[in-house]
Design a protein around this nucleic acid. Sequence first.
DNA 1: TAATCCTACGTTATAAAGTAACAATAGAAC
DNA 2: GTTCTATTGTTACTTTATAACGTAGGATTA
Lengths: 165, 165
Amino acid sequence: MTAHDHANCIDRALAEAERICSQRGARLTPLRRQVLEEIWRNHEAVKAYDLIHRLSGSEHTTKPPTVYRALDFLLEHGLIHRIESLNAYVGCDHPEAHHDPVLFLCERCGDVREARHAGLIAILDEMAATQGFTIAHRTLELRGRCTRCQSPDDKDHARPPADLP
Amino acid sequence: MTAHDHANCIDRALAEAERICSQRGARLTPLRRQVLEEIWRNHEAVKAYDLIHRLSGSEHTTKPPTVYRALDFLLEHGLIHRIESLNAYVGCDHPEAHHDPVLFLCERCGDVREARHAGLIAILDEMAATQGFTIAHRTLELRGRCTRCQSPDDKDHARPPADLP
DNA sequence: TAATCCTACGTTATAAAGTAACAATAGAAC
DNA sequence: GTTCTATTGTTACTTTATAACGTAGGATTA
Ligand SMILES: [Zn+2]
Ligand SMILES: [Zn+2]
Ligand SMILES: [Zn+2]
Ligand SMILES: [Zn+2]
């Protein structure tokens, strides 16, 4: 992601989520809101078990089902996307209407960016139609390097090494 | 998949694999060949642990690393595709040249069909180019219903219930 | 031929990702 | 307030995948 005021992203995402949920009579409980907030901490793909660790204080430990249920809720309401090729999740940029985005996954910095393209969907629909296939869901993920990660040896914003055990 | 002489598919796939490997100086060992053969038993997505069970006779038990290494070899040489959204694998129809196919996954019968479309790839490349993204790999998977599985209550070729424990 | 090297395969152990089943609790509805 | 339902907690487990190291066999070389 290009440099930006990320606090804005977070505020906007949470406000949108509140709005959408109240509009649908769905309950964005504190837990669900907290998970969404953690996912929006940055624009990187987030793993379920990272969420579990982040939500587990030294006292209170959060168990897998707790997080997975929150993720299910957020997925159902289109507030996040699941990244199949990474077993990870990312906040949705445009949650107001359902969509299957193209996800650009930077394998250097971990950032995820979503895009949509009507012509692309049209081609997929046409491919499906010619063989009588009915599409229920599209998984469209592109792995590679984002703009900022083109130069192979620039270490400025490379993903930090994984947490030590 | 439409009705067809599947023995042909298997023969062709194995012959192609032999040809490609020998041409590249890669060794299609008995184990790797056996895994490929199991994957080609039909046109369905195959799970790694199913392969482990299939290769484990009552005496000789095959361990995960054995199968995963064979899968890695087959993936490297483009003889199979990994299906990210299913954690499963399927034989490649056209292994002679590298490609990232569109995979049509029938959620009723489990069949997988691969397709390619130059215009689609062009659009993805163009989307990437406009944001300075360099694509290394594409995951394109469409979940839904194949031609034969359009009528919701036709049970003729529904996937059998999972193996009992 | 024997020493060597390298690749593939075997084995043990463990990590990472996800779910089933049931109990406890907190909101909403009555 | 009581009942009902949705949400969260908890225990246990399944599925998927990898790390680390040992072994065997074929090719290469001395
Ligand atoms: Zn941001
Ligand atoms: Zn990047
Ligand atoms: Zn293919
Ligand atoms: Zn089908």
